[in-house]
Design a protein around this nucleic acid. Sequence first.
DNA 1: ATTTAATTTAATCAAATGATTAAAATATTT
DNA 2: AAATATTTTAATCATTTGATTAAATTAAAT
Lengths: 220, 220
Amino acid sequence: MINYFFLCIENIKMAKKEKIKLVAEDVSTEEKIKQAATKVFTQKGYAATRTRDIAEAADINLALLNYYFRSKEKLFEIIMLEKMQKFFSVLMPIINNDATSLENKVENLAANYVDLLTANPDLPLFILSEARTNPGIFIKIAQNKDFLQESVFVKQLHQKRPDINPLQFVISLLGMCIFPFVMKPVLQKMTDIGENDFYTMMQDRKTLIPAWMKAMFKTK
Amino acid sequence: MINYFFLCIENIKMAKKEKIKLVAEDVSTEEKIKQAATKVFTQKGYAATRTRDIAEAADINLALLNYYFRSKEKLFEIIMLEKMQKFFSVLMPIINNDATSLENKVENLAANYVDLLTANPDLPLFILSEARTNPGIFIKIAQNKDFLQESVFVKQLHQKRPDINPLQFVISLLGMCIFPFVMKPVLQKMTDIGENDFYTMMQDRKTLIPAWMKAMFKTK
DNA sequence: ATTTAATTTAATCAAATGATTAAAATATTT
DNA sequence: AAATATTTTAATCATTTGATTAAATTAAAT
């Protein structure tokens, strides 16, 4: 997260280009490539994606991809870092808020993640599976390894239930929000759940998950 | 699931071989390849796996892979079907048992899946991510699309809470069992959770998840 | 208007990769 | 022991794929 801009504006040439394009405000070739890459990478994963797929989706010449981003790997890193940022920009402000209660944080997390993932359904599977296949990239994201343990959220969880590892609740909460979207491809191939049913269920989860978590806090 | 053996013993030649090898009881070349393929495929996914990786891991000549399994894709299908079977051979008997209570089913599912996934940590991410990338294979698995809706488990859930879609509970339960393993690669790269901590937490979940689910059933 | 810089195109390269082939080695049957 | 079938090896193919190059085109600066 920290070195996101460093990586993104990796050399001066690109920095120049980016600025020009931002001022110009048009959908630049660079942006077209990035959008196409986001689509193809998140749908098929890094290994299954061909640079030619991206070029075709972006409706550009293949050489342009390398001209703008040097390599498939560099382009992928940019996309991945953006996606990770999206994830953490939801998580961090909520779990570190001193002013909200534990219950309130749970409500916020459920609502915000359901909305984020409804808009980006294959985001979780993309991040989670690339973390396994492509470990190198996650090392570059110099995240403070204690950000979770030191969060207000974890402290509130510990206060509420000192007898249970707070991470158990964190994993369950994230699982209840994220897992449906991870499971979606399998679910849709194995059952008759359609797009509308799924959407309704996810919306219902905004209230179900907080209610469930409250009940889980109270178990003896 | 249904056509598993049909696919596996795709032609008479292979059927012959298999029988001979089973009788002979030695670790046949075919079995060596399958074991190596299982390892590499589940770790790296289909697209990122090179047939040469498998050959090297199995310590055999590359041509043998094609001799025994015709193609990378055919080999993959066999591995995938075995893995799916592993998953469903845990799920099906439990959710279709008339003799056990709802609470008992939850206990069984939690305990059995924690054990299964502790022994096969990258099984879920393998299945879930290939379902997205490689949709063709899941069509071949001619699963009855109503097996879940018609299960005793879903009926018991409906009886307990007619006001909530039973699938909401199913997804949450599976999520609480499976998601930790899906999240494991990311979790380990972002926090200081070691292998031992993770193991302990998963064992604790065998009792936590049933307790939580019971509490969730009671929410107003 | 001319020069310089940035962008785009078409053609091509080199390496990687799934697969095949023909011959050699080993096992099985007659 | 000879003949036959099975298994293994080494060499090679044909494609695919990420990347490059040199030329053409367009935009920007002087």
